[in-house]
Nucleic acid binder design. Structure first.
Lengths: 240, 240
DNA sequence: CGCCTAATTGACGTATATCAAGTTTCGTGG
DNA sequence: CCACGAAACTTGATATACGTCAATTAGGCG
């Protein structure tokens, strides 16, 4: 773990009693499998805002599950350019893109103080292991991640900044709803710059587009808080 | 299989004797596993240029491996916009993004007459199955695909059209080299428009940038044929 | 040989990046 | 609790890279 970021002592939560089981990697596994894996997991360690889970290029020895809070992943090239790849919420698994080559492609850092579970890769990839259900579960999670990256690609390739922002907000809305939160009112844990970077536009453009959407009566923004007043309006904006 | 595209009779090649084993999904599996899977695979069926392997939204019952030729995958939204997601060469596996939800996200069509192997998903995802090595192999392939999509995202997010084209050519160069072909001279199996779409620029811009790279002495283009005269020059173009 | 699509080339307009100035927010320490 | 400074954000003015439109040429295939 980079910088001992995950070493903060914290109340241990076992997977079996975790309220997030249905969202998590382990949620769909038979009890026996969870038992075997359970002991190797570092459960819900508290990490401060802005700390790194791992850096690009580091050996990938673990996957990380967001128990609470949020994390951004991003790529950096040798000229120092950063491209935000994803924002990860409760229940999401980070680090799958490091499995193939054995070292991380992206870097990952927390957007707010977050609680993170660390799952050693050796336990997951053991071909002779007993965790048969786990592999197919992991594969489905990887497949889902693929889907998200490809949709992200679509956003950037085919929509203008206003539409990208609408898609971003609608996407967050859906994911918050899946997690039992409001679909129409939530806090943006990431900065405007991070949103801009993620959507491949300038920071100033995000300011302007938030204002524009507000002037159109589709959303209401107050600092980090966003309210989506007209979900259908946002959707129509995208399909035109 | 859509439109009976894969029904053309063709000389059957078994995985064990396939020249592409080292590139393929099955290349790293123990012989026993290949034996079990072998019988369920439709080996190297010939498909004409422009035929579809599958459409977005269709039930995902198979994965497809490119035995020879090339395939593009792309997303379509309900307004009809197309975004090319990837170009797939010999040995690459297509359809992993359909595993999670059970239906394909992207559509896939051949860029030239190609030979394609079809692998039923039921055989792959069977949790009680005997193919333990297969799951982790599949997971690594998914991880690799994730990596490619995320790099693609980076290209579009952070580089200008000239740089994107250079990255695209360098990427093709590397992949051809891995397959035993020339790293500096190859045919583009996709149209300019497909390249443009993939790189999220206008078709005309690709024409202009190809010309520009040629005028700089970095490449030489003749219709579909490209020669990379200065690989380092192309790389420097990107890191500036 | 002739049609149809793909590719090229040029002229032009605009969306959005960039630059710059100003304002608000927020964390920190007095 | 307030004051300060540093970020983050907003807002405006300007420039330009690239998309769009249009006309032309070249290739591919029947």
């Amino acid at each position: 773990m980079t910088n001992s970021a995950l070493c903060t002592p914290h109340r241990r939560i076992k997977c079996q009693t975790c309220a997030l089981r249905h969202l998590c990697l382990l949620g769909h596994l038979p009890g026996d499998d969870i038992d075997s894996l359970e002991q190797h997991i570092q459960h819900s360690q508290l990490i401060q805002r802005g700390k790194y889970l791992f850096f690009s290029g580091e050996p990938a020895h673990s996957l990380y599950a967001v128990h609470s809070g949020s994390v951004k992943t991003y790529l950096v090239d040798n000229a120092g350019n950063e491209q935000v790849i994803g924002f990860h919420l409760t229940g999401e698994l980070i680090g799958l893109d490091g499995l193939d080559e054995g070292h991380h492609l992206v870097s990952a850092r927390t957007l707010e103080t977050s609680s993170i579970c660390e799952i050693p890769i050796t336990e997951l990839m053991n071909p002779g292991g007993k965790l048969h259900g786990l592999s197919s579960r992991l594969l489905r999670i990887a497949s889902h991640q693929l889907r998200e990256d490809e949709e992200h690609l679509f956003w950037i390739g085919k929509y203008n900044p206003e539409q990208r922002l609408a898609l971003f907000l609608l996407n967050l809305s859906e994911r918050y709803q899946q997690r039992g939160f409001s679909a129409t009112e939530f806090n943006l844990s990431m900065s405007r710059i991070d949103i801009a970077n993620y959507l491949a536009v300038a920071g100033e453009t995000i300011s302007r587009m938030l204002l524009l959407l507000q002037q159109k009566g589709l959303i209401r923004v107050d600092r980090k808080l966003v309210r989506l007043d007209n979900l259908n309006g946002l959707k129509e904006l995208v399909s035109s």
